[in-house]
């Protein structure tokens, strides 16, 4: 008898579900999985995980775009402008925009507006988007890191009874 829900499906739910309902949802899924038993429970769990993720990811992406991409793009433009005004020696290669500072400032911006939980899944989607506009690889990796960091930020506060 299988008593453990499918690990990858559980991970998918954990990464995509809003933080304030994540544990309750995983508990509910686990409860139903045990009730249904294997293999029906496993199939059912996967279906729920996929349907739920498909529902949450687009909404989260909509929040992610103005929340991360716009500040990052603005920061990138700012550093590019500042760096372009510094004269370089002949043959010197201009250093890549200040990734670390961009990261810190973007995280602070994200924390300031309390973005909803991010996820690697969302990051991957943004990575594809970033790659499609041919951003440098290390810059694309930043998009993977940010949503993961965002998931550690406090979730929206809801009044409880």
């Amino acid at each position: 008898m299988v008593t453990r829900p499918p690990v990858i499906a559980e991970w998918l739910v954990r990464q995509t579900a809003p933080a304030d309902m994540r544990e309750a949802l995983l508990g509910d899924l686990c409860e139903e999985f045990v009730l249904r038993g294997s293999p029906g429970g496993r199939r059912w769990y996967w279906k729920q995980a996929l349907v739920s993720a498909a529902q949450w990811v687009p909404a989260s992406l909509l929040l992610l775009l103005p929340g991360y991409l716009l500040p990052l793009w603005l920061l990138d433009r700012l550093w590019a402008l500042l760096l372009s005004s510094i004269p370089l020696k002949e043959d010197a290669v201009r250093a890549w925009p200040m990734l670390a500072i961009n990261l810190v400032v973007a995280c602070l911006l994200g924390a300031a507006v309390r973005l909803p939980s991010g996820a690697l899944v969302l990051g991957a989607a943004v990575l594809i988007l970033a790659a499609s506009v041919r951003l440098p690889l290390d810059y694309c990796c930043l998009f993977l890191v940010l949503p993961a960091l965002a998931s550690k930020w406090p979730a929206r506060k809801v009044k409880r009874v």
């Binding site: 739910v13 579900a17 809003p18 304030d20 309902m21 309750a24 949802l25 509910d28 899924l29 139903e32 279906k47 729920q48 349907v51 739920s52 993720a53 529902q55 949450w56 809801v158």
Partner: peptide, 11 residues
Amino acid sequence: IAIGAVYATLD
């Protein structure tokens, strides 16, 4: 019904 839809609605 997907449990995700229920939670999204409740939220």
